[in-house]
Write a protein that binds this DNA or RNA. Structure first.
Lengths: 210, 210
DNA sequence: GCCTGTGAAGCTATTCACAGCT
DNA sequence: AGCTGTGAATAGCTTCACAGGC
């Protein structure tokens, strides 16, 4: 039951729990977490069966215990190192997200190809030329990469990432990468998602009136 | 069978077909489209059952016919108008995607709250103050919105979008929006996806060695 | 009374298998 | 021989229903 969907929801539970903890709350019911993750209480309870914790009837789950359990399972305490290639608008925007407090990953190296970007400082990291990717990634033992380069360059850069030892890629380019099966790819395809909302909302409108 | 997943794949077929057409190809097999969309030939063939087209054995599908069929079904020829709120790094990055040739949607209005952004030109559009959202969206008949504001402001801005008549939102803020059921929301949650790749790739590594 | 934990049913999406056409 | 089109089987996820504890 540790599927992609499961992780996505658990990350949302974690986020909600952090807010609850900051607000001083001690316990929480599955229904409340369900609201935060836009799912049902049953799903929440099933998801939490994979987490070392137990809720008590009438009171719900202990915020502190649940949060600790989630962080153990997700390995959130490890601050896994990440590399990013492509420091345009998008790269800099993503940089902002990763710097946010509740991100359990740590950006350790950034790369670009453009001479005006190389050597510059981004979020405290000096931008390397993308040719340095193999050494840097290997030296720092980085396994995770974020791809924020233009679509035409995505495949080539991804190949170099994989050659350097990266096994997980968050791909923002509007292209499906062809990579070995042992590499996990998550696509953040803005154009596809935008067309999907357009279609889904139109569909909803049609089925409502029809 | 016109689900969210279906649209996502059809958009990818469309993209692949455009490239094939540009390259002068006349026919294409389901296996080739499957590769482009990272799925199986069977899925492609089932997906295409919703499209007005027919493949012929031994030759496959006619690129031109299939492309035309997809554009009819997706309504890609309409150039549906879109509004965007939040013109920071992220907003400007997304602007670049939407301007790309194969995006069948048209950005018609952009908004921000910051005085230094309001009045500025972004991709040929003069940035409005977010307070003008109701009139502008209503006047232009916009139904689709892109939310690229910081997480803390996302819910408030989304509420205003919905009040102004928007029924589909592409949400980049790391927060689940609470909106009426008739509004379609697609979440592009960078932090969640990043943690998902981290987990999935770690899981793959464990199951490979274990 | 209220909330958790979970078997069982139901649903959706994908894969298998293969008939049919050119 | 090669590729489409599709019934049937399967797998995965979600919802239903309810027993059990505080």
């Amino acid at each position: 039951m540790s599927s992609r969907k499961w992780v996505g929801r658990v990350v949302l539970y974690r986020r909600a729990l952090q807010e609850l903890q900051a607000a001083g709350r001690e316990t929480v019911a599955s229904a409340e977490l369900a609201e935060a993750a836009a799912c049902t209480p049953e799903i929440v309870r099933r998801d939490l069966m994979e987490i070392p914790c137990s809720g008590s009837p009438r009171r719900g789950y202990t915020v502190r215990e649940l949060l600790a359990g989630i962080e153990v399972v997700l390995g959130a305490s490890e601050r896994m190192p990440v590399a990013m290639v492509g420091m345009g608008n998008l790269g800099r925007a993503v940089l902002g997200y990763i710097a946010s407090r509740d991100c359990p990953l740590q950006l350790r190296a950034v790369f670009d190809r453009a001479p005006e970007a190389v050597g510059r400082d981004f979020g405290g990291l000096r931008c390397h030329h993308v040719d340095a990717l193999p050494e840097v990634v290997r030296d720092l033992g980085i396994r995770l990469g974020i791809l924020t380069v233009p679509g035409a360059e995505a495949q080539a850069v991804a190949d170099r990432m994989v050659a350097a030892g990266i096994t997980g890629i968050l791909n923002f380019a509007p292209a499906r990468l062809a990579l070995p099966g042992n590499v996990t790819v998550e696509n953040m395809d803005v154009l596809t998602s935008l067309q999907a909302v357009a279609w889904m909302s139109r569909l909803a409108a049609i089925s409502r009136q029809g």
